[in-house]
């Protein structure tokens, strides 16, 4: 669209805005999630769950979805915090890497077990009443 004064600034601006508005939702619903917890001598020593929005589009198709209750929020961290137990159980079902080392020195035993979900891309669909989460593979 050409303006009366002959410059293209209006059409350029419009196309840039359109491009951004169309491109953002493509990656907005994809999140990178990792989970790790360490047990030392049968005691929970450290637990970390990291969630971040993907800055690049992930490859793969979704499988094994989980539906969490949602009160019209689009904040995944908040939704997961509200349903943390369900989500952690779901991560266990997806599969965790187990690393265990145990040392017995002069009949004194020390053990460390680490369960890890390596950083994985999840597709998240937000709806009014629920959020649908599924990993991409």
């Amino acid at each position: 669209m050409r303006s009366r004064d002959g410059n293209h600034s209006f059409s350029r601006r419009l196309s840039v805005v359109l491009l951004f508005s169309l491109a953002l939702p493509l990656s907005a619903s994809e999140y990178l999630i990792s989970y790790r917890y360490v047990i030392k001598d049968a005691l929970l020593y450290n637990e970390s769950l990291t969630i971040s929005q993907a800055m690049q589009k992930c490859k793969g198709s979704p499988y094994r979805e989980l539906i969490l209750e949602n009160d019209a929020s689009k904040d995944l961290k908040k939704i997961i915090n509200q349903n943390s137990e369900t989500f952690i159980n779901y991560l266990h079902k997806l599969g965790l890497s187990v690393e265990h080392t145990e040392a017995t020195v002069n009949a004194q035993n020390k053990s460390t077990t680490t369960l890890t979900l390596k950083t994985q891309c999840f597709k998240v669909d937000f709806n009014d009443n629920f959020a649908r989460i599924s990993p991409l593979k």
Partner: peptide, 15 residues
Amino acid sequence: RSTVRTSVRAMVRNA
């Protein structure tokens, strides 16, 4: 000194 070290590495899913 007597030392015994054990280690396990695996991937477990669907338990």
